[in-house]
Design a protein around this nucleic acid. Structure first.
Lengths: 222, 222
DNA sequence: ACCTGAACACCGTTCAAGT
DNA sequence: ACCTGAACACCGTTCAAGT
């Protein structure tokens, strides 16, 4: 119970960019991207929509701030130590889990250029690529391939999750999916028809990691 | 100059899903995703907004139809013959070029599950994966890793392109970008600071292909 | 400096009414 | 069967006016 001595203390109901972003993240988590509205947000903060514009330029800035806030909280936790490939796998999983927890992050992270946290992650991956001894001319290609895969896969996973209500039975969803692929014309879709059976015991997170390892194997060849 | 004999002939100004989708693609190309509006579209087709809803359920269906139309026109052109890896590279480049030409495709393709043309592409890539002799248990991982990378990279490229007006000098953009990275604190961003120099002679399409080859190398190891 | 909330210029979508 | 266009329920954003 700290006594309120510093003059930086604020009344609990005072508006600030921090509080706005915090509320925005909560609303995005609860109601998805379409649930975040300046009207709904200002109602939650008990003000008018115009008040928010004093602290935030527009919705794009708000979404960018929410993205950075949601990702940063997960990123700082992990200390980046160990063999380069292990560190990359760890970073990848942190991002996968963050996007799994905040599905709206998927859309946001793969929009526009890398900056803020995304740039930091790119940097971290790049450092590991260098530590792996990849030739200078191929470092950027390797790092950006990993980056693109990680963001793309996590985003894909979030999109899939959004298709089904949170409580849906996992096995049932997979079975439905498998049945759809098995039902495809074997003449026209031999591949998808074939591998439909593999979907039964399918772990999204494990397959995500398999993909990362696949790229890491390719990077190791360089 | 075919004579109008068949009763399937329509007056040129008759509305149809085909004409609507065609106009939608044109508007997306000209004005981007925010340029496609039911009001603007109906004005272009010289009707009211309600007329469109007779042929199309909603905007999502319209965007999906536009996506399929824009991608299909490019896909059918190429005959898929040759060594598996070559075919995969060819498919990848077709998609890259299609998204480069229709930047709005990037957003659309990585939204929701694979279906329509996207499913066909997945099938085609999967067939080549099988032809490469990849073990059954790793075929899906390989195909989806390629798929995710191709979609993600092309999307990233489209996002970058959208940042700059079409006429902008390429070298100038790269130089600005390189300067930004070079300006990063070397203590905090050693990797990005280091590779800034490589950006000067940077070819997005070539690097995209490098990434595909990287994954193909990893798949070859399996 | 910071907040209020009505108002503006839009959206997607619906639906009675027409042909 | 197909089209019309006004109307509904929203958006993001602005801005005069308040404290």
């Amino acid at each position: 119970m700290a006594t309120r001595t510093r003059n930086t203390d604020r009344r609990d109901d005072a508006l600030s960019k921090e509080r706005i972003v915090e509320a925005a993240v909560a609303m995005l988590d609860e109601a998805g991207e379409s649930g975040l509205t300046f009207r709904a947000l200002s109602a939650r903060l008990q003000t008018g929509p115009g008040a928010i514009y004093w602290h935030v330029a527009n919705k794009d800035e708000l979404l960018a701030a929410a993205t950075n806030a949601a990702l940063t909280s997960g990123m700082t936790a992990e200390a980046a130590a160990g063999p380069p490939k292990d560190v990359i796998r760890a970073i990848a999983l942190i991002m996968f889990d963050a996007i799994d927890e905040h599905p709206w992050l998927g859309e946001q992270l793969s929009r526009g250029p890398w900056q803020g946290v995304t740039l930091q992650i790119c940097e971290r991956i790049g450092q590991q690529i260098q530590a792996m001894g990849v030739p200078a001319g191929l470092q950027f290609t390797s790092a950006s391939a990993l980056m693109i895969y990680i963001l793309g896969a996590a985003r894909q996973n979030a999109a899939n999750a959004r298709m089904h209500p949170p409580g849906t039975d996992r096995a049932e969803v997979l079975e439905t999916h498998a049945a759809a692929w098995r039902g495809l014309d074997p003449e026209q879709f031999p591949f998808l028809h074939d591998i439909a059976g593999q979907l039964r015991d399918h772990d999204d997170r494990a397959q995500f990691l398999d993909g990362v390892n696949l790229i890491l194997a390719g990077v190791g060849d360089l």
